[in-house]
């Protein structure tokens, strides 16, 4: 597949003219950007701006209306092994009958492959991942007995157990305690040291300059993206959070309505 002008084959995530729609209502318009390698990248924007959708579209979890996404120059299907994903904590039922170690082991499943049981080596890797988020003493605790922050750390450990190159995290900092926040920051800086690329949906604007190198400012379309010191400006923040663009959201509403009318 030829690479379009302006996009590089060495970019871990290269997004071309991506549009995503739910029930035909567009939630992301024409996203077109390259994510640089080895950086911590924050995705910020107001509620409903399409932050989670961007990640889910990259990972083929939601269908794309148009456009394509290449990871190191190849489609996601061929690069799955390179990617680790931390979904939002609320996306699963924490009353599931499993312990913390069991959840982290799920990060090893695709490496283990079909029908084979988890081995000793996988357990060691999973324990190591739990250790890195400061949760090793909770390995055999049922997940419904963990606090919200601890559950978040278990999810993070599952992604670490995958030992990937590109990490996508959907709001890992959402309503966590101070210990968890510290653990996540530690993990992020470890990953950067190892040259991994990390894309994080982030809510807390104040900590963006402190935690991240790069920022994608999103409100149904990309308002700005680039190094934090260049693009994380008051002007861009106003553009991102100053309400939805009336014309864009009206057009989206109209598209959705057309579907109802047939």
């Amino acid at each position: 597949m030829p690479i379009e002008a302006g996009h590089s084959e060495t970019s871990p995530v290269s997004i071309h003219d991506l549009t995503v729609a739910y029930h035909r209502k567009p939630v992301l318009w024409d996203v077109d950007l390259d994510i640089p390698e080895g950086k911590l990248v924050a995705v910020v924007g107001p509620n409903g701006a399409g932050k989670s959708t961007l990640i889910k579209a990259i990972l083929d979890i939601v269908p794309r209306a148009s456009g394509e996404v290449l990871l190191y120059g190849k489609p996601f299907k061929k690069q799955r092994k390179l990617v680790a994903y931390v979904p939002q904590r609320e996306s699963v039922d924490w009353d599931f009958p499993i312990d913390a170690l069991g959840v982290v082991l799920m990060g090893r499943y695709s490496t283990i492959g079909w029908c084979k049981p988890t081995g000793k080596k996988d357990k060691l890797l999973a324990m190591d991942a739990l250790e890195r988020v400061g949760m090793s003493e909770y390995a055999h605790r049922q997940i419904n007995q963990l606090s919200g922050g601890q559950q978040q750390r278990v999810f993070l450990a599952r992604a670490l157990a995958q030992d990937s190159t590109i990490y996508f995290m959907d709001e890992p900092f959402a309503s966590v305690d101070a210990a968890t926040e510290r653990a996540i920051i530690q993990v992020l800086s470890d990953l950067r040291e190892k040259g991994k690329t990390v894309v994080v949906v982030h809510h807390d604007l104040q900590t963006v300059p402190e935690y991240f190198d790069h920022v994608i400012m999103l409100n149904m379309r990309v308002v700005a993206h680039g190094p934090v010191e260049d693009v994380f400006t008051n002007d861009n923040l106003k553009k991102t959070y100053g309400g939805r663009l009336t014309l864009l959201s009206e057009a989206a509403d109209r598209l959705a309505k057309n579907k109802v009318l047939g």
Partner: peptide, 11 residues
């Protein structure tokens, strides 16, 4: 347990 994660893993 986690259909979304499962999808992202290619199952």
């Amino acid at each position: 347990f986690d259909e979304t994660f499962s999808t992202s893993q290619g199952w």
